[in-house]
């Protein structure tokens, strides 16, 4: 049997991300985000096939009865080859599901691919259901059920929201570059989560907090941007910080941040307000220690990965894993890094 590259392997490369740098490519025919969005829920929890890329992205910091930390990821990506949906195999909507569980010493990853149109994967807004194969995220956004399986792990979780949705950037219009590339971006960062991790070592009961991101766009990056470092931090006092740094080919960076109070009030910070500095890389050259400063809020913390080797060995590889931080503030969160492969 040939061991050569296969359509399968090319798919995510050409469509889902073309490496993450491909996100900066202009594609005709798709809608593009505009300022001053008016969201319509629950419809906007569902898919937007006329936008090129979209995701439902959930990360959770968990711990078992002994206080051992775990990280959990559930993601459904949508990538459109054309700006419409169609029934059957002709659907140009491609779906990619990623699930992961990170322990202090191991990182379990699963990936599924599917085409829209036949029912194998998709997102329905009301009643809300996002699924690919037997992985699913379902509920009314106050409470959600979530499950996923891989060849060596599975999980089954219940989530319950304790705060409001928060909107990043200008009311959910999140600018990604000086040239004005943008996405629609909102989150539900106030989930309590509990459930069972099924790992090779046995079942583990866990509880913790989860953060669900929703984002869609057609060209979220400028063409000189090659990847990003994204942080979601939950402070011990209940406040939260979403911040990201976009890497540019000229060596410069573009940063953006949202300060979220414990009550869910947000303050956006434009480029430059948040400063992000890598301190230490792991064996593969991926930074796993960072310094984050947001002087406007008196934040100066050092972020550290729970497990340095949280590399997602998926079609488009990236790093995604739980972190803890200390300094002016303490807490935990999640880190995602792309553009390092």
């Amino acid at each position: 049997m040939n061991a050569k590259a296969l359509i399968l392997c090319l798919l995510p490369v050409t469509s889902l991300a073309q490496g993450f740098a491909g996100l900066g490519t202009e594609v005709d025919g798709f809608s593009t985000p505009a300022p001053d969005p008016v969201f319509d829920f629950p419809a906007d929890h569902g898919a937007h096939p006329d936008y090129r890329i979209e995701w439902w992205y959930l990360t959770a910091n968990l711990e078992d009865a002994d206080g051992t930390p775990y990280g959990l990821q559930w993601t459904l990506f949508r990538s459109a080859l054309a700006p419409y949906e169609a029934d059957g195999w002709d659907s140009p909507q491609l779906w990619m599901g990623h699930a992961a569980v990170t322990t202090e010493t191991a990182h379990f990853v699963a990936e599924r691919l599917a085409r829209g149109g036949i029912g194998q994967a998709g997102v329905v807004a009301d009643p809300f259901s996002a699924w690919i194969d037997d992985s699913a995220l379902e509920g009314d956004w106050r409470t959600l059920q979530m499950r996923a399986t891989g060849s060596d792990f599975s999980y089954d979780m219940a989530l319950s929201a304790t705060g409001p949705l928060v909107f990043h950037g200008d009311g959910g219009y999140s600018v990604k570059s000086a040239a004005g590339q943008a996405s629609y971006y909102y989150s539900q960062p106030f989930f309590d989560i509990s459930g069972t991790l099924n790992l090779p070592t046995g079942d583990v009961q866990v509880t913790g907090s989860a953060w669900l991101d929703r984002e869609w766009s057609s060209q979220p990056l400028a063409d000189n941007q090659t990847g990003w470092d994204w942080f979601s931090l939950s402070f011990d006092d209940g406040a939260k910080l979403m911040g990201f740094r976009l890497q540019q080919t000229d060596g410069m960076h573009y940063t953006s941040a949202t300060w979220i109070t414990a009550e869910g009030e947000t303050t956006p910070y434009a480029d430059g307000a948040l400063q992000v500095e890598p301190l230490l890389t792991n064996a593969a050259g991926v930074p796993v220690h960072w310094r984050l400063t947001l002087p406007a809020r008196g934040v100066d913390v050092t972020v550290q990965a729970v497990n340095d080797d949280a590399w997602m060995t998926t079609s488009v590889p990236y790093w995604e894993g739980p972190v803890t931080f200390a300094g002016t503030h303490q807490g935990r969160g999640y880190l995602e890094m792309t553009g390092y492969d």
Binding site: M1, K4, L6, I7, L94, L113, A114
Partner: peptide, 11 residues
């Protein structure tokens, strides 16, 4: 192609 085992099909 999205669900076929690696190595099946035109390459």
């Amino acid at each position: 192609a999205l669900t076929a085992p690696a190595g099946m099909g035109p390459v």
